[in-house]
Amino acid sequence: MSDSTSETQSRKRPWLALALTLLVPGLGHAYLRLWLRSILWLALYVTASTFVLPDDATPGELSVDAFVAASEAVPLEAAAVVLGVSVVCLVDVYMMTSHVNNRLRRASGAVTVCPNCGNEIDEDLSFCHWCTTELEESEA
């Protein structure tokens, strides 16, 4: 198996991480194998839901009327807190997916890095477009 094949198998899909996080906050982080973040986000969501939502916001039975009554019992401030935790978790899982994929690309050697500033550079250039350091042919 070549390096590019193993890199594509290791790359994480941002859309899948986002979809898993929409189902259960923290599940997208578990997909990325960020176990501590996954547990922390799930705990934050459960804690926010437990302490912010009133007791009568839980439906007593599985019917449409019970769910409508439970949703009407949720104050706007409580819904905003729970929604805010979910949105911040979605942003975090997207950013972490990008970070994990960049780390995988750098580890596979598919990225050329400037020896001066450490930023990713274009292989076609003879200088770093970040810090303008001239590159030798062997580095590029």
Rank of each mutant, 00 (worst) to 15 (best):
D56E: 09
V113S: 03
D92Q: 13
E136Q: 05
L83A: 11
V87W: 13
V85P: 04
Y31E: 02
P59T: 15
I121T: 08
M95I: 12
E72I: 13
W35I: 14
W15R: 08
L23W: 01
A80D: 09
V24Q: 01
R33H: 14
Y31F: 07
V52S: 14
W35E: 13
L125M: 10
R13V: 05
E134K: 12
H99N: 12
P59G: 12
T50A: 14
E136N: 04
E72C: 06
E7C: 11
A70L: 08
S108E: 06
Y94H: 10
S138L: 00
A107Q: 14
Y31I: 06
F67P: 01
S6D: 10
L53F: 04
N119M: 12
K12P: 09
R33W: 11
L104M: 01
C117K: 01
V87M: 09
V74T: 15
D124I: 00
L32V: 10
N101I: 02
S6I: 12
A48G: 09
P14R: 05
S10D: 10
L22F: 15
A79E: 12
D124H: 09
W35P: 01
A43H: 04
G28N: 11
Y94W: 13
S138G: 08
L76Q: 15
P54L: 03
S86F: 06
L44S: 15
C117R: 07
L27Q: 05
A48P: 01
E139T: 12
V85C: 05
L135V: 04
R103H: 05
V46P: 06
K12A: 00
S71D: 14
L135Y: 01
D56P: 02
L36N: 00
L53Q: 03
P25K: 04
V111S: 02
W35F: 15
L83E: 04
R103C: 04
L42G: 13
L104Y: 02
E123K: 09
M1C: 02
V113L: 14
R105M: 09
R13T: 14
V52Y: 06
L135K: 01
A140S: 13
L20H: 03
A69I: 05
L27T: 03
L76E: 11
S6K: 14
F67Q: 11
L18M: 14
Q9M: 09
E61P: 02
T112D: 05
P115K: 06
V100I: 11
A78I: 04
V100C: 07
S4T: 11
R105Y: 00
L18V: 15
A48W: 03
L125S: 05
V46M: 11
L18H: 02
C131D: 06
L34V: 00
R37K: 10
V88L: 14
W35C: 03
G28R: 04
R106E: 11
V88E: 13
P14Y: 10
A17Y: 14
C89W: 09
M1V: 12
N119T: 09
S126F: 00
E137L: 00
G84Q: 02
D65K: 10
F51E: 13
A48Q: 05
